[in-house]
Amino acid sequence: MTDIPQIVYVVDDDEAVRDSLELLLSTVGLNSKTYSSALNFLDDYAHIHQSEQHACILLDIRMPGMSGIELQQTLIERGSKLPIIFITGHGDIPMAVKAIQKGAMDFIAKPFHDQDLLDRIQQALRLHAERYEALRDSQQTQQHLLTLTPRESQVLQLMLAGNANKVIAAELSLSQRTIEVHRAHVMEKMHAPSLALLVQKMSRLES
């Protein structure tokens, strides 16, 4: 999805670090926005949350006020899907393990190679694009589900269980011809060109 703009949010209390990351990102054509504290980032979060950009966060661990780890926790609570890459000069293994277990995409100790960081940023942006598309697809499927009549929903459930029209007809005490019509409506309303794709759409709702 190259038509959607990309942006990297940098949260670090050290101005020199912010500047050098911004410069590094610009050399590969990546837009960035910098914040000098976790709270500044949160102030902007409503705006960030609504923007339709593929994004990730480069997050410092140790900052005065709210730490990077605390910001991660807050973002989890707010249901954020932004991938986080922690960057730290003072981290240790338990801290890194905890951050990853809580869903951080990466945890990088300084000093690091620029190319290594850029590779991970590209990974993070891809991951965000995938999450974004998965969310959008599942919202669409939800919308489509709402357009089904109660009878069509019943037919859908029986279709998903792998039943043939004959079985569904017997189950619902309807004629096979009627089931065929319902089935066609279900496929049309769910925007599913095949049963396989319908099953796929529905299974992605759960996750």
């Binding site: 981290g91 890194a96 393990v97 990853i100 277990q101 990466d106 945890f107 990088i108 100790a109």
Partner: peptide, 19 residues
């Protein structure tokens, strides 16, 4: 060990990395 090894292990699918 080091942070990079621990992170790599978790990203590869380990549940935990204990020093």
């Amino acid at each position: 060990s080091d942070i990079a090894t621990a992170v790599q292990a978790l990203k590869s699918g380990a549940s935990h990395f204990i020093e």
